[in-house]
Design a protein around this nucleic acid. Structure first.
Length: 584
RNA sequence: GCGCCCGUAGCUCAACUGGAUAGAGCAACGGCCUUCUAAGCCGUAGGUUACAGGUUCAAGUCCUGUCGGGCGCGCCA
């Protein structure tokens, strides 16, 4: 790893602060942290620190006076050309001319790894995301979490963490039963039975498709008499009637036959989800089955452990977890009166197991509607003796969809939704990823489908990709003209002395620290904004000069800079999972 | 009612996590193609950062309150 310029400056200033401490200007026991920021305006130099402002009070001195003393105590450094004091007491640092060219060598040496921290040098992190119930295809509403989760995983990887992606599959519970029964009813209908699908069953076309396939394989082998089921439905409320219907179908089909429908539904939907996400460039390391938590006894043992520690009590025939002892609003049921564990029971076991697998940090990406759920899960981890700080829940706001200026409603059961696949096929994986990654995850967001689908300059992704394609084109043209171009490292960087070049070099230099910052704050969108800034700096430069018509020396230097910009555009686009096309 | 998230240009969003004159894109207006791709560039206009207080050298950012929007408050998942 190459040290960032900030590191060197912090070192330089630390010595001065130490000096002032021994001189008695600053209290010797005062803990000083020095921060350097890149400046917004070039009149303020390359870097600025507010250290004199933060030390003014403990030192009992006017910030500007203190800044003077700090600057006076600095030893000379060949990398620093000038140090100014400005405003209320900022210390602005101007770097030496040649220091700015260093970044080019870094880019050329590291290549596709430029900006990336040493792999596997930090924490072991699991990112769990999407984890939508396997009761139907993913819809557009899942897109934001999917893209955010994957981009975050990529950012964390780039920052040197070891990252695993996991999808928690809710393959146990009532929704799955409703699904399996819905498939059976559609199957029975195809086989000629006049059994209506209840309105609270799954209505989507994909149910029909699965039923049709089952019918083709098994003909009418699994039909039941409608009369025997009708009785189960009469005189009950909708949900109770549905449960009765499920039970009835289950009993009459027999476990083995019922499982056929269950497995068919689960397997094909899961396969569809996997395929869909893979089409987005999202690939998981593990698909963790909720059912396996039952089968392995992990739920039971987690409950037993909580019982033993006195964190579970009985009330009204149900088992309650005392989450209020750990800061939750109210206690929560883990095992119902009827003996069925709740979804929360699975979650306790799941998160406990997750942390126990040796991750330093487990990140959950949840829809914002689940925010109230976090305290109880953390509470359960604490009760089980796990540091709940190891679980980080990041919330993603739902995107409100618009089509033709109208809000688009979403409902999985009714079968009326835009699938994620549809979105991807219409606007492309790249555009969708870019679009989502433009927004901070916890920010409310409007998703204009018409806009996302339009392949116009209104979509900023093209702006960034175009910069990359343009650079590729320059080299293609140079080649066509038979020009002999020096290797980038062999060119004279000092010829890159214009304002455009300075702006670009600065952007390139910023990339490694940007990745670290984006990772630290779980904000992949920073990469997107950076890429747009870099593309802007490039397009602006491009329009100001025709490189290929210059004298050889400056031409080759400029092409070296082009090459570096192309590399960083490519690296950055890779981190958000968007392609860097050679031509457009 | 209580809790969490949010409120920034006409629209969609940033703002290096408390720093200097709040920035981009789209939309609007005016310029730039005999040229390595105009999916581009240059310029103009657009703001009391919802509102009112507070904290300090410094607040869009932190605290309190008000208003407005979203979500949550099940022996649902």
């Amino acid at each position: 790893m190459t040290n960032t310029p900030q590191d060197a400056l912090v070192e330089l200033f630390s010595q001065a602060i130490t000096q002032l401490k021994s001189d008695g200007v600053i209290p010797a026991d005062h803990d000083v942290s020095i921060m350097f920021e890149r400046t917004r305006q070039k009149e303020h130099g390359d870097y600025a620190t507010n250290v004199a402002l933060t030390l003014a009070k403990p030192a009992g001195k006017n910030p500007r006076v203190l800044a003077d003393l700090i600057v006076a105590a600095l030893s000379t450094d060949s990398q620093v050309s000038k140090v100014d004091i400005a405003g209320p007491g900022f210390i602005n640092v101007f770097l030496a001319e040649d220091a700015r060219y260093k970044v080019l060598d870094n880019v050329f040496i590291r290549g596709a790894d430029y900006g990336l921290a040493a792999p596997d040098s930090k924490q072991k992190i699991m990112v769990e995301f999407v984890s939508a119930n396997p009761t139907g295809p993913l819809h557009v509403g899942h897109g934001r979490g999917a893209v955010y989760g994957d981009a975050l995983a990529r950012v964390l990887t780039a920052a040197g963490h070891t990252v695993k992606r996991e999808y928690y599959v809710n393959d146990a519970g009532r929704q799955m039963e409703i699904l399996a029964t819905s498939v059976w009813i559609r199957y029975a209908q195809i086989a000629g039975n006049d059994i209506p699908l209840p309105s609270n069953g799954y209505q989507g076309d994909y149910i029909q498709t699965m039923a049709q396939e089952l019918f083709e394989q098994h003909a009418d082998q699994f039909v039941l008499s409608p009369e025997s089921l009708a009785s189960a439905q009469s005189g009950l409320e909708d949900e109770a009637a549905l449960d009765a219907l499920i039970k009835s179908v289950k009993v009459q089909l027999g476990d083995e036959s019922y499982q056929l429908f269950f497995r068919k539904a689960l397997d094909s939907i899961l396969a569809d989800i996997k395929d869909d996400l893979a089409g987005f460039g999202i690939n998981y390391d593990t698909w963790y089955s909720e059912q396996s938590l039952f089968d392995s006894g992990k739920i039971q043992s987690a409950v037993d452990q909580l019982k033993a520690s006195g964190d579970i009590y009985e009330k009204g025939g149900a088992l309650w977890f005392k989450s209020t002892d750990y800061g939750d609003e109210k206690d929560r049921v883990v095992v119902r009166e009827n003996g069925q564990p709740t979804y929360f029971a699975s979650d306790i076991a799941y998160h406990f197991d997750k942390i126990s697998r040796g991750f330093d940090l487990a990140i959950n990406i949840w829809g914002s509607d689940h925010h109230g759920y976090t305290p109880r899960v953390k509470a359960s981890l604490q009760a089980l003796g796990v540091d709940s700080e190891k679980l980080k829940v990041l919330l993603v706001q739902f995107a409100v969809l618009y089509r033709g200026g109208e809000k688009v409603g979403m409902s999985t059961r009714s079968g009326q939704f835009i699938t994620l696949r549809e979105l991807r096929e219409e606007i492309g994986s790249d555009a969708a990823r870019f679009f989502y990654t433009q927004r901070k995850s916890e920010q409310h967001m409007d998703f204009d489908l018409d806009l996302a689908k339009s392949k116009s300059n209104e979509n900023p992704m093209y702006y960034v990709q175009y910069a990359h394609a343009r650079i590729c084109r320059i080299f293609t043209t140079a080649n066509e003209r038979g020009l002999t171009i020096k290797a980038p490292q062999d060119t004279d960087y000092t010829l890159l002395n214009g304002e455009h070049e300075a702006a670009l070099l600065k952007q390139l230099e910023r990339f490694p620290e940007l990745i670290l910052n984006a990772a630290q704050h779980y904000e992949p969108h920073q990469i997107t904004y950076y890429l747009r800034d870099l593309a802007t700096a490039f397009h602006s430069w491009y329009n100001s000069s025709r490189f290929l018509e210059l004298e050889e020396e400056p031409r080759d230097a400029m092409l070296a800079l082009c090459s570096a910009v192309r590399q960083v555009l490519s690296n950055g686009l890779g981190i958000i999972g968007v392609a860097a096309p050679n031509s457009m």
